[in-house]
Amino acid sequence: MNSLVLNNITKTFDKGSVLAVDNVSFSVKEGELFGLIGPDGAGKTTIFRILSTLMLPDKGNASVLGYDVVKDYKKIRNLVGYMPGRFSLYQDLSVKENLQFFATLFGKSIEKNYDIIKDIYEQIKPFSNRRAGKLSGGMKQKLALSCALIHKPKILFLDEPTTGVDVVSRFEFWEILKKLKSQGITILVSTAYMDEAMKCERIALIQKGKMLGLDTPQKIIESYPMKLYGAKADDIYSLLKDLRNYDQVESCYPFGEWLHVTIKNPNADGLEVLKTFPNSSTHQNLEVKIIEPGIEDNFIRLMNTSDNSRDNN
């Protein structure tokens, strides 16, 4: 059973001159943790706003829990928990006051629904009298999530909840999402951090309003069509330049401590090619190895093959 269905959704801004979402279709199963993965400007926020009934699509239709996002917007607003990308709590109200306000807004009480936010809220409870504006990034996210959850929504929309949050808080946040999922809440979450894609059950890769791919993270990784090699040396920048200039190399880009390299000839032994390229002797401590591609490698690949990659290469 699908909690969420999008059919050919298109949305433009400024009288059609800006294409924000381009013919996007996907569906999210009940209880699924689904990730929208893409950079800023990919159209993630617009998709969230259409689904949470804050915007009308130009074309296509979408339903949330069986309700149409245009016609049944009032019903949807009761059933959805939405955490917008911008921190959208009252900075001048305390943690407790914010939570109280959002609970009452939905006609619910904190006491009755406390079980659902308990794990999250307990972490910020020591600061319940502090103004929301004075919280750290990680705590703000937890409060915002608590406020989005307090009315016990069936489905949760989280627009870039981990942006601007440090690694530790991000890690904790994903642990929380796993727990919520285990309680049966359907979650649609977006992120610009490619490494977070692995924590979702299924993901949609989007860029410039278009879907680049849709599958489980594992399947997307497996779909990488060629061998990926890693190379490094003491002077990584000159190695990067040399490899890019080498005609056997199809692509070469930095990735962590290694350069990720693909070779034009699929039958060639890439390790050998990379060890013996023309300038290889000038590089100290040159190392090469086969690399397991990640989501980000796939994203880059898909971006390049997509029609829209014109201004990125």
């Binding site: 950079p39 800023d40 601007g164 880009y253 880059i300 990659s309």
Partner: peptide, 8 residues
């Protein structure tokens, strides 16, 4: 580079 796509 916050929020920028992987290629950029």
């Amino acid at each position: 580079t916050g929020g920028v796509d992987p290629i950029t």
